[in-house]
Design a protein around this nucleic acid. Sequence first.
DNA 1: GAGAGCATGTAATCAGTTACATGATTAC
DNA 2: GTAATCATGTAACTGATTACATGCTCTC
Lengths: 205, 205
Amino acid sequence: MTCSKSYCIFNISLRYIGGANLLEYIILGILYSKPLTGYDIRKDIEIGIDMFYKASYGSLYPLLSKLLDKQYVCCVEEQHGKRMKKIYHITSEGKNAFIGWLEAPIEPGSSMEAFMARVYFYDKLSYKISSIRIVEYEKHLVDYLNDLIKKREQFMNLPNQEQFYYKLSTLYFGICKLQSIIMWCRTVSGRNELESLILPMNGEE
Amino acid sequence: MTCSKSYCIFNISLRYIGGANLLEYIILGILYSKPLTGYDIRKDIEIGIDMFYKASYGSLYPLLSKLLDKQYVCCVEEQHGKRMKKIYHITSEGKNAFIGWLEAPIEPGSSMEAFMARVYFYDKLSYKISSIRIVEYEKHLVDYLNDLIKKREQFMNLPNQEQFYYKLSTLYFGICKLQSIIMWCRTVSGRNELESLILPMNGEE
DNA sequence: GAGAGCATGTAATCAGTTACATGATTAC
DNA sequence: GTAATCATGTAACTGATTACATGCTCTC
């Protein structure tokens, strides 16, 4: 019991030091290009990375306060008629924190969505580092793909496959998705023509 | 204020009626095949659908209690040496609830992971309904893909594309992923050979 | 006898959504 | 004038993780 309490304190301090979540960096990344209101930050997120990250006001505004506390952003209040707008600006500390995060290797366990949220800002990085990071991530994906392929082989040795067609199909889903993302990594890490990624498909219009 | 309170009550009652989350159905689906302990349910989830659903004991055990309350499962305690095992069995009410969920159309806004968690259990459904549900889901994906393709066209009209190569690449990521999943849907809804989904790739061994 | 894995759970915390609450501005 | 959108937030709740807490059983 005494032990658990001290562990707990240790955790809190760890979180306090390292503690910043994905959305914090996304906010910093968006403010890096231009100062915006909370409302506009949300719109930018919606337009740009809605596909792999959703931000509601309920999570956005409290995080803006947190970033103010950390002095990663500062806030300038502007009068627009009767309405007051709070324009958030990134500080130099905020820029450093953001670039530090952006340059860092991707944590092995992170999701494709977290990876893509980072890639979204890679135009702010050198080609060299961006490519290294994407190639690193590709390696994770290839390892994962090989695991799934092994798993599939185990499945294929079983009898009565028609009885678990759909179970097996979800495994193929994973393989499909991984393969297409690996192709994406190979194209993007070499900064090749993106158009080549598009498959010829009928029926999408 | 008075209004908000009544809304709140309304919400609670709504949730009470409809309230079951994905993991509850996954547990029911797993118990549908065989009775298991909480520990073994987790292992089954890990082996089968870890790819798109993670379940920790912290979420699993409280849900098992909830399912007991609802009488969707019952629990038989067995003595194994000095250790007591709690074997959970699905009840007929539980089976009905599970099949009802499994047969239902997929909610338009649901993620691919939620969709796949359902497909994982489609072997318990007729071929006809399974196919209809997958084709329905494919339509959502095609709509979404068309939105992204439109977005890409807007992007392509902008000058200085090399300045936002990575921003654009995340859009291509979405397109790639959607295309591969649409292919998957077309194969699986027709119950075609899954092997055809695998792309010829070098470097995965 | 030590360590991996079996087995069951709770408490604290976290990250995020939804509903609530308010009111100004713009376009029709 | 009214509906959509701009704009800022808070409170309650949800769904889930992680750490804590405990102790058995099997394998080496």
